[in-house]
Design a protein around this nucleic acid. Sequence first.
DNA 1: CTTGCCTCTGACGTCAACGTCAGGTTCTAG
DNA 2: CTAGAACCTGACGTTGACGTCAGAGGCAAG
Lengths: 126, 126
Amino acid sequence: MRIGELAERAGVSVRALRYYEEQELLASERSASGQRHYREDAVDRVQLIQMLYGAGLSSKTVAELLPCVDAKVNTPESRARLADERERINQQIIDLTRTRDRLDAVIELSQSPASGCTIVEEALYA
Amino acid sequence: MRIGELAERAGVSVRALRYYEEQELLASERSASGQRHYREDAVDRVQLIQMLYGAGLSSKTVAELLPCVDAKVNTPESRARLADERERINQQIIDLTRTRDRLDAVIELSQSPASGCTIVEEALYA
DNA sequence: CTTGCCTCTGACGTCAACGTCAGGTTCTAG
DNA sequence: CTAGAACCTGACGTTGACGTCAGAGGCAAG
């Protein structure tokens, strides 16, 4: 498929795909006229890249990780690298969970008419 | 306390604290000579700001949320706003969990000598 | 009183992941 | 064959959360 179709199917912009190639995250084959062509599994690859970006990884880190994911590289170092990033993500989940719980506490307070919030309510709806 | 002490105790830079004030996330009292002074609870406030930044909220969003957290504003809209952001964070946790699980699967594969990885291992250690 | 650290206000620099525009080529439908 | 959509390569623009530097004033210790 060409770049436009991949962009639509993977839910990213054409510009983003060219950027991924520039960062060596995503390869493409070129036709005689120079147009990029992708295989079906490129959709999956792009979505994985998006997942890793979403986890806060930089394109440099993703570039280092992807060969491990492809199992084209499998050394003690690459396994350690994968485990490292897994731990970072896990820690991020823990942090976010704490943030969510803190917001929950705030929401709880704002909904309880027994709290000091009632003063505000009275002021607003008196 | 002055800005340097707050920065150290909250684990952020002095520049960041001035930036927070500029964004109206953190107020300060000024001495006659113009120096900023903070109360003890500013440490907590800064850490909350950091948590929200860590959850991907912009300073604009944080600025809109903080009055609700302080329970200085309590309207149906502010409660909805809080619930919205809570949901965004919750969704982020779900996404991150999927990313972590995908990495776990990759790690599992790279550790199993029964997989195609053994070919790579042989190539590397033959 | 002066040395040295802390603080102040601008204001420009940075970095990543693209957005966007220019100017030109290529593919496809009719 | 031709219009219009899709594609190409530069290359400059954008945004947020600060970093960093300049120039000047403030404060505690000796």
